[in-house]
Design a protein around this nucleic acid. Structure first.
Lengths: 85, 85, 85, 85
DNA sequence: CTGCCATTTTACCGGC
DNA sequence: GCCGGTAAAATGGCAG
């Protein structure tokens, strides 16, 4: 029993380590992207653009994209419902 | 006057388009990472780990790392201040 | 000298106490208003209103009309520049 | 159909107007308090106080108060749990 | 005007 | 699956 328990713990430790490292790696990459975005905005500002306005545009474009995706999904649902898959 | 304005807008338009596309690309990559992180946590949970605890560990590790980085920075500052650059 | 110092400290202490109490009182009142606002929104939601939309309306109303018009104009300009008309 | 729709919209319009006006009124009062706080700090600064330090004190006092309230709440919970209501 | 801090908004996670 | 609260991120305002 103690063997099994020890083995389990060891395996779990490896798994846990893997989980933590993968998450940390991904968070780092995520943070890099956030930093890059900041840089782009800084450059935009340096070129005389109004960053607030650009952010509003991007937000609107995202909303449009989301809305379209949603409509596509609904369309697919309808198609499948009438055997148009 | 209208010529100048039009030209400005066109040039700005290219730049603006570039800015927007770069940001959108980066935000997409950022969102992918966030999604991947979610997946890792879901897998961890599926393997019987407590996600809340893992998050706490990662947060602490990050805090430690940040603190160390801060101390390093301060040390460098002091070194430079006394010509130990 | 110690008398003078002591007196000064005492006076400052009274002043300081007054400052702190006034700020704390004001912050409490401020927090009450924030809480009341939350309540109104909760009621609105309970009556089927979309809180996000109401917030957008209030934000627009709050914005200085001239400045809002200016921003709209700039937004349109940017949109036209990238063909998002 | 159009009658019903119109009536619904009218009623909702009244409700919506009420919601918006109440929120706007509360936000105005909230902003007044914020402004008053700024004034107190300005006065404090004019009297030679260090505003940053005062803010730290107030923040700590608030943290203490919150902690105590939390403990009180927990105590009440325990009391109720054993019929000491 | 830049960095910092408060507020607001948004995303996440557990409960029903 | 929605809804409530909670934690992270984005935004805005302010002092220095």
């Amino acid at each position: 029993m103690s063997d099994t328990a020890t083995t389990d713990v060891t395996l779990s430790g490896d798994q846990l380590k893997s989980i933590i490292e993968r998450v940390e790696q991904l968070e780092e990459e995520k943070a890099e992207r956030a930093s890059d975005i900041k840089d782009v905005y800084a450059e935009a500002k340096g070129n005389g653009f109004d960053v607030g306005t650009i952010k509003r545009i991007i937000k609107e474009r995202k909303a449009d994209k989301d809305r379209l995706a949603e409509e596509e999904e609904l369309l697919d649902l309808y198609k499948r419902a009438i055997g148009m898959a």
